[in-house]
Each structure stands twice: as structure tokens, then as C-alpha cells.
């Protein structure tokens, strides 16, 4: 598994554990069903899925670590490494491409100063921003669309609009 140093989840916050318990209770037939939800909870709280995270979730659900790791390596949204504090996702697929999605990606990538060709995640030099292409975000009528963390932006069809979106995060801690 990854060589990256990972936090040891010895004393997880009480509210996180409460979230985990509540989530598991939604699956009365099989705890294994809670794998994806727990991975989401973990990633939202700690940024990425570390080796200890895989083991902890497996242990909580009575599974083998491989049952959890094989999900992390399959589902595109789960990450094995940290990304920027503000993670940008730009839609790559046809309707957005017809509306300028590739141009939007290049503008944003340049503005955050990240290197990359659109494959995989590119991170800004200060590590605050990261960017990746994702497949269709299901808002094709307002192309091109993008997300910053959970925030969603439509019709970002000019360099000015792209800068405005970024400006909102640049001043944020």
C-alpha cells in the first residue's frame, strides 16, 4: 500500500464516531453496504483514504481490509493521497466540451499554477488548490460546469467568470 505517512486513527472525534454509527444503522440487512458511506465520511473529514483508514473501516464493518481497499482503487472519487484544500473538478465530457470545458480547464490550471496535461490530479505549488477533469456532471444544459469541493458552478464560459470563481476561494483559509 502507499508509503505516505498516515495519521493513526487512535482517538477519532466523538462526532465522527456518531456519524459512523448513524450511517451503519441505515443498513440493517448487511453492514458491508456501509463501506462506501464510511469511505465518504472518512475522506470528507480527513482528506483521503490512508492505510489505517482502510483497516479501521474494515474492522468496523467486520470485513477484511482488501474488501475496502478494492473499493478505493475502483471508485474514482476516493483518493489515496491528499489533494488541495480546494479541489477543482471540471467536466470533460461532450456537452461541456462543446461549451468550452477544455478551455475552462486550461484557464483554471494556469491560474492556480499547476502543471499537467489533464490526466490525473494536478496540484498548485502552494498545495492549496488541485484540479482534475471528471466525466459528465449532469448539468449539460449550462455548460461548461465545474465544482470546487462540494460547490457547483454553471456556465463558467469566460476567463472572467473562471477568475471570479477562484477569487472566492483564494482569500479563504
Amino acid at each position: 500500500m502507499s508509503a505516505e505517512p498516515t495519521p493513526i486513527p487512535a482517538d477519532l472525534p466523538a462526532d465522527f464516531l456518531a456519524d459512523v454509527d448513524r450511517t451503519v444503522s441505515h443498513y440493517p440487512v448487511s453492514m458491508r453496504s456501509a463501506s462506501l458511506p464510511l469511505l465518504h465520511l472518512w475522506q470528507e473529514r480527513f482528506g483521503y483514504i490512508s492505510d489505517p483508514a482502510v483497516k479501521w473501516i474494515a474492522n468496523r464493518l467486520g470485513l477484511q481490509p482488501i474488501n475496502v481497499l478494492e473499493l478505493v482503487t475502483f471508485y474514482p472519487m476516493f483518493r489515496r493521497h491528499a489533494v488541495g484544500k480546494f479541489h477543482i473538478r471540471v467536466c470533460r465530457t461532450l456537452s461541456c466540451a462543446l461549451g468550452g470545458g477544455y478551455e475552462l480547464f486550461e484557464i483554471l490550471r494556469e491560474q492556480i499554477g499547476a502543471q499537467g496535461d489533464g490526466h490525473g490530479v494536478a496540484v498548485s505549488p502552494d498545495g492549496r488548490f488541485s484540479i482534475e477533469f471528471v466525466e459528465c456532471l449532469a448539468a449539460c444544459g449550462t455548460a461548461p460546469v465545474m465544482m470546487v469541493n462540494d460547490d457547483f458552478y454553471e456556465q463558467v464560459n469566460s476567463p472572467t467568470k473562471a477568475s471570479e470563481v477562484l477569487a472566492h476561494y483564494k482569500g479563504k483559509e
Binding site: 453496504s33 456501509a34 473499493l71 471508485y75 474514482p76
Partner: peptide
């Protein structure tokens, strides 16, 4: 129940496997 970025989960039996906590 939230998916995690895989189009194939729209196929109903793939969706069910996913909901069971599998690939």
C-alpha cells in the same frame, strides 16, 4: 446512498452490487 464516481453504477445490477458494498 451515495455513489463514488462510477458510471457503471447506473446499470441496475451494478448498482445493486455497489449498494451491497462491492465493486
Amino acid at each position: 446512498h451515495r455513489g463514488a464516481g462510477a458510471y457503471i453504477c447506473g446499470e441496475e445490477t451494478g448498482l445493486i452490487e455497489s449498494l451491497e458494498g462491492k465493486r
